[in-house]
């Protein structure tokens, strides 16, 4: 699919949790073409302080309204500059980029941690059947996602490291019980690498299809800088930006 660079007006840019922002911008072409799991590379035009674009998974795309939603955490120069952007300011958006999630039949289990939950929102809206969610965070404050997911999920399982909400432990702690009880048709996971590796390992034993969405440092998003390449379990080199970010789990984790 053809990629575009669009000067997109910001429609909304608001904090939705501690240090977490949701930005909605108008980019008609991207909103029509975007697939769940794809991402955009964004920058403030003419902002030399942040030299490179930043990749963000698409959290929602509304073709009728022509809007794209991203959810981001304040981490450095780039995201701090984004957080100051006002309604009507222009954002330079390149996309849609990458190879997204497979929209499988049957009830899927979506396992997310941190900002990795954002692209799963768009996926949940696009799947033929309402999915189950299993999300994890350090504490109750990090589980604000559950309110965003509630209308999209058949059921939401929650774990926190400190036990302040849901089951105490990690998503991997609860996964075997969820698989046993819910018998999902497949699993999709997006979040910290260590979480995805654990999830992929447990799902492998069950024989269910499992997709993972990778995040790596990249400069271009179009397969030329080679910042984001990795070696697959088959020993071949792949680029997270154009070959992924979504891969079958067995290609990434042995």
């Amino acid at each position: 699919m053809k990629k575009h660079v669009i000067e997109a007006p910001v429609l909304e840019n608001v904090p939705i949790a501690d240090g977490i922002y949701r930005m909605v911008f108008h980019a008609q072409l991207l909103a029509i073409e975007a697939q769940p799991g794809q991402f955009v590379m964004v920058m403030k035009p003419d902002d030399q302080a942040t030299f490179l674009r930043r990749p963000f998974g698409i959290a929602d795309a509304d073709p009728a309204a022509g809007t794209i939603t991203i959810i981001y955490r304040l981490v450095g120069r780039g995201t701090k500059a984004f957080a100051k952007m006002k309604q009507g300011e222009l954002l330079s958006v390149e996309g849609p980029i990458g190879h997204g999630f497979t929209l499988r039949e049957g009830r899927q289990l979506l396992v997310g941690g941190g900002l990795g939950i954002a692209p799963l929102i768009f996926l949940a809206k696009s799947l033929p059947e309402k999915p189950l969610f299993l999300i994890g965070g350090r504490n109750e404050k990090e589980i604000f996602w559950k309110d965003l997911l509630a209308p999209l999920a058949e059921k939401i399982y929650v774990t926190t490291d400190d036990g302040s909400f849901g089951t105490k432990g990690f998503t991997t702690t609860l996964l075997p019980d969820v698989l046993e009880k819910e018998q999902p048709a497949g699993v999709v996971t997006c979040g910290p690498t260590i979480m995805m590796k654990g999830i992929a390992g447990l799902v492998k034993e069950s024989g269910l299809p499992c997709e993972v969405s990778l995040e790596k440092r990249m400069a271009c998003g179009i397969g030329v800088c080679l910042g984001c390449t990795f070696e697959t379990t088959a020993g071949t080199r792949k680029k997270v930006c154009v070959d992924g970010p979504v891969f079958p789990a067995e290609e990434v984790f042995a």
Binding site: Q48, A49, F51, L52, A219, L226, G227
Partner: peptide, 11 residues
């Protein structure tokens, strides 16, 4: 393999 620096990048 990539790091942003003031008005530039390292690779």
């Amino acid at each position: 393999r990539i790091a942003e620096t003031p008005s530039g990048m390292l690779n």
